[in-house]
Design a protein around this nucleic acid. Structure first.
Lengths: 349, 349
DNA sequence: CGGGACTATGAATCTGGGG
DNA sequence: GCCCCAGATTCATAGTCCC
């Protein structure tokens, strides 16, 4: 969509998108007035009013588009906002004020940042992303297993090391001039979209710019909505998108976590004779021995109940994952954890 | 000084300190107990000093102490504030509202953060520091050369990799219980104080806690003022300080900073398009063919998982180095082992 | 004394589905 | 909306103990 971000957002139905990625401008034009860029503040007078005015206008704009974004976001959807120290604190505070629930702040560590030429500050080598659910109680999606897989089977951390967008990926006009001043790298959006969406879900970018969000969403088999006010950027994004081929559906899937897999009650193993009623289960150290009941319950001393309940009871622990705690004793004398039987019949229940 | 931060600040003369380091309460909002997967209980920060009724109360408190801090700060002085996503956006916005001029936000990347035990978010692996001058026109001190020297003659970046405060540095009582829940590492304060002060200048910490700021300031030959409300913490800091010897003025203190391992997950090659999602990998004999998923996993027959796990599964082997096992098929029909792509990535991850 | 096994712990807004 | 309960979930260090 080409047009003003807030107007376009208002035209979208409520609770309709699964994820929002927003890269708002920080020296933006408000209602036709051109705001001064930061370095034009040459006035030596320490004029606090003036500064407050600027911040207030920016905050009002932020509040307005974030309010609409929240309306458009599904209950279980999440919001990503990216910014730098000039604006990210105000963004984050407004995100919280509007009722979003921050899940993480994520640091994009730039592999190749621009050095600080005057030697008066630290090299500004990162930007900050805020990841938030619609509210504190939201059942948001987080593709934990996929993120872990993406990071060589270690939990993904909140600091991401990703190069700037350069080379062939950077959109340039016929003269070789870059089309957009702050084109985001596709690798960044790849991680964002893989983290919190499934194939076919809808990703919205209210400040589309050169179209990185839409490009990555399309390639990963997600649907997308992009809003951009400047026709030049919108046209560049359109052309860019036309050349993108989605990867196959299988490759676009996120590794399902155990929680998403079909649940198999222990009783099914008993019914099918994989763990027969009347047989015995043991913990790893063979300190405890439990009798398998025909109804899928265990008995161990005075404790009776589910594999989890009895596992917790014998250990005097608050809870226990019985699938990982209990074992079957094989004929070779080796213990086999009962969780393995579940995967054997994962085909159907 | 032992006493309320705001009252004590009011008692200090205006424009009298060169640098302020502040680690205010984070206003964590924890809802219940949290257990590790092994059922052990996480020791939460549930102290009364960290509880506020709502954002408005926290903001009012922030505004009050920052106002006094600004009054006490010299015109050429700078302010450091540290926080996490719970509070840092509100802190930063207030810093700006009061007229401070943000110079950098700096990321403390934790070498050994606590994992996310429930797998519902990214590992919270960093905290944010805000570095600000008193105003836009301030002639603040930045020891550029010292920072560059501290960083192997490269400009110091805005992301700092520093371990948590553990081991002998961590203050403990006679029972071995940590004295303060959030003691900051001396390495962090070393860099802060070295960056923006000269020997003999005054460093103020309005939330002294266990006294890290004062300890490092004393060792580096800076004068210091510490304010702490809790007598227990104040007493611990006092004892800690008594044992500190200032280093000689000419001493070239080098940090025992640990080099970080440039580990490159396979998923990064996928994100960056070096091995695109949806493409195929082969073993050397081309007996097996695997599909590359967008999350950096492979799919080959029924096997799904990391390059190592799938490599092991197809060979029916206990383990496998996927970097050496899998290859990309080039246009010339030649196989290229994926390990070669790792070396193409500059820097680290 | 070295190495391996085992344990402890760190600013944490840490579950979800069915009845 | 509330209650109940199945069951999913951890990484880097430092310290201790034992062989």
């Amino acid at each position: 969509m080409v047009g003003d971000c807030i107007e376009m957002l208002r035209s979208l139905p409520p609770a309709s998108v699964h994820a929002i990625f927003a890269d708002p401008p920080y020296n933006l034009q408000l209602r036709g007035e051109l705001r001064r860029p930061d370095d034009s503040l040459v006035d030596a007078v320490d004029d606090a009013w003036d500064r407050f005015d600027d911040f207030a206008a920016y905050d009002a704009f932020t509040r307005e588009w974030l309010t609409e974004a929240r309306r458009v976001l599904r209950k279980d959807g999440t919001l990503w906002v990216i910014g730098a120290y000039h604006n990210v604190f105000r963004l984050g505070a407004t995100v919280q004020d509007l009722g979003f629930w921050i899940l993480n702040d994520v640091i994009w560590r730039k592999a190749n940042p621009m050095p600080n030429f005057r030697g008066r500050r630290f090299t500004n080598a990162h930007e900050t992303l805020i990841w938030a659910a619609r509210g504190p109680e939201s059942k948001y999606r987080f593709n934990y297993a996929a993120m872990k897989a993406l990071n060589d089977d270690l939990q993904m951390r909140s600091d991401w090391f990703i190069p700037l967008c350069t080379g062939a990926e950077r959109l340039r006009d016929v003269k070789g001039v870059k089309v957009h001043p702050t084109q985001k790298p596709e690798a960044l959006l790849h991680r964002v979209i893989m983290a919190c969406t499934a194939p076919g879900e809808v990703v919205l970018d209210p400040f589309l710019g050169s179209g990185t969000t839409a490009a990555v969403a399309k390639r990963l088999g997600r649907r997308f909505i992009g809003i951009e006010r400047e026709p030049i950027y919108a046209e560049a994004a359109k052309q860019r998108l036309a050349a993108i081929e989605p990867i196959g559906e299988s490759a676009a899937q996120t590794l399902p976590s155990k929680r998403e897999q079909p649940r198999i009650p222990f009783g099914v193993l008993v019914e099918r004779g994989l763990v027969p009623a009347g047989s015995r289960l043991y913990d790893r150290a063979r300190r405890y021995e439990a009798l398998v009941g025909a109804d899928g319950t265990l008995r161990c001393g005075t404790a009776t109940g589910s594999i989890h309940k009895v596992g917790a009871a014998v250990q005097d622990a608050p809870s226990c994952n019985g699938w990982a705690f209990w074992h079957v004793l094989g004929r070779d004398g080796r213990l086999r954890v009962i969780d393995e039987f579940r995967t054997e019949i994962a085909g159907g229940v």
